[in-house]
Design a protein around this nucleic acid. Structure first.
Length: 419
RNA sequence: GGAGGCGUGGCAGAGCGGCCGAAUGCAUCCGCCUUGAAAGCGGAAGACCCGCAAGGGUCCGGGGGUUCAAAUCCCUCCGCCUCCGCCA
């Protein structure tokens, strides 16, 4: 939810943001109107209720006939208060709905437009050249005995897979390397629940436009998380944090579940786009004024990880329309995938400013000791998908795959050999 | 799955349907005392909303109800605890 005070002060800034996202500006005016309506409903109720409270005290003292008369009048007042209360609640519900409909205000500097309007900030490393026909990650994975898609489909359906033997070891090595880096950088490692309540899923913004992406267990009214961002964001819900000693940084290790509705036919081969994968996600709570600098730090940590697996990548500044409702700015790192002759997303870091924290009730105390809404940020440190870039970029003519230097201590192998 | 109990401020813990935003203790903060500290003494201190302010209102797990009036009575949901059963 955006800050209503800044909305009142500068509604045009929010309208501008909506234009950059390619979204309806009228939802801004609806929100302003709903805010106005609620405020007048609140003061009407407050006035009436004050009257009723005063009146109630008189009834308590009165005796006999006087008391009877007062009781009758009290009934009338009671009805009025009840009506005002109902009006206030209706106004509040309307406000909430209008509030939820407005996405975060896009940060200054982010490119306007949709999915294809990103700006490439930087290229890092050169795409490898092969003196043989490079195999794709699935062929490589099968030959290495690392990956079994067929049995994944047999057991669970399309977009499911088994990581087998060295494949499982590879994923563990990757995630362990990420966990080690995060821990060394001062993050607290977390293994969170992957089933969450509706209010947590909603509070993190995943039940809006992305609702169709989320698995729901109807029987228990729980949701399977698509990223540990969800439980980590919810971790401090309704708390007032002490951020005096700096940001609270968490690294969540979890399995992630995504329905991939509406992506039929896209990336059907291999493990690029799957219903279930593992990920280490950085998640930060900090003061709003520190959020930009923290965002740059998260990006730097992501790049440090990418350097460790020695793949070429580029960094893009995601366009406003592709940010998702919670983010004000988002940077993706995309690794080169040789057989696709394309860059594919391996990491994504978002600055959600106070948008997500406001909904979740995560606050901190400022210098004056006043509670203020915190800022939240997130970023990827490693996922199952990284295996794609790793296998393809480091493959050799005989079908073996060179293990990047930094990963060797975690994997205990220098090269993966076909079976 | 069955039976029972509990849910109050940072924590602990009181609270006859009106005088309760709520006793008390601990912790916190500010004074005094002290060379400094501890102890002791005095004081301050919740969150949210409306309002320029003065001020007003809401909040005793969530929601609903009874009543002129609810932390206090009723219903319901959620959470926690204990016992029994069942099973990783």
């Amino acid at each position: 939810m955006i800050d209503l005070k800044t909305l009142r002060d500068d509604p045009d800034a929010v309208r501008r943001s909506q234009r950059m996202r390619g979204e309806d500006e009228r939802s801004v005016d609806r929100l302003l109107a709903a805010d106005e309506r609620r405020r007048s409903a609140v003061s009407r109720f407050d006035t009436l209720r004050a009257e009723q409270k005063q009146f109630g005290k008189q009834v308590g003292k009165a005796r006999g006939e006087e008391r009877e008369a007062l009781l009758a009048k009290g009934k009338e007042l009671s009805a009025e208060v009840k009506a005002a209360d109902a009006e206030q609640q209706a106004a509040e519900a309307e406000l909430l709905e209008a509030h939820m409909a407005v996405p975060n205000v896009v940060q200054e500097g982010a490119p306007a437009g949709g999915e294809d309007d990103y700006v490439v900030l930087e290229h890092h490393g050169e795409p490898p050249t092969f003196d043989f026909e490079p195999a794709d990650h699935l062929d490589l994975g099968v030959k290495l005995g690392a990956l079994d898609m067929e049995r994944g489909a047999k057991v669970s359906g399309s977009r499911f897979y088994f990581l087998t033997g060295v494949g499982a070891q590879l994923q563990l090595a990757l995630l362990n390397m990420a966990a080690a880096q995060a821990t060394a950088a001062g993050f607290q490692l977390m293994i969170p629940p992957v089933l969450v309540r509706p209010e947590i899923m909603g509070g993190t913004g995943f039940l809006g436009a992305h609702a169709a992406e989320v698995y729901r267990l109807a029987e228990d009214d729980l949701y399977l998380v698509g990223t540990s961002e969800v439980p980590l964001a919810g971790y401090h819900a309704d708390e007032i944090l002490d951020l005096e000693r700096g940001p609270k940084r968490y690294a969540g290790w979890s399995t992630c579940f995504r329905r991939e509705a509406g992506s039929y036919g896209k990336d059907t081969r291999g493990i690029i786009r799957v219903h279930q994968f593992d990920k280490i996600e950085m998640f930060v709570f900090c003061k709003p004024e520190d959020a930009d600098a923290e965002h740059q730090r998260l990006l730097a940590w992501e790049r440090e990880m990418l350097d460790k697996i020695e793949v070429p990548y580029r960094v893009i500044d995601t366009a406003a329309g592709d940010l998702g409702s919670s983010a004000a700015r988002k940077f993706d790192c995309e690794a080169w995938v040789p057989t696709q002759q394309a860059y594919r997303e391996l990491t994504s870091t978002s600055n959600c400013t106070t948008f997500q924290a406001r909904r979740l009730g995560v606050r901190y105390r400022d210098e004056q000791g006043r509670p203020q809404t915190a800022a939240t940020l997130n970023g990827t440190l490693a996922t199952t998908r990284w295996i794609v870039a790793l296998l393809e970029n480091h493959q050799q003519a005989d079908g073996s795959v060179r293990v990047p230097e930094a990963m060797r201590p975690f994997l205990g192998m220098d090269v993966l050999q076909p079976r």
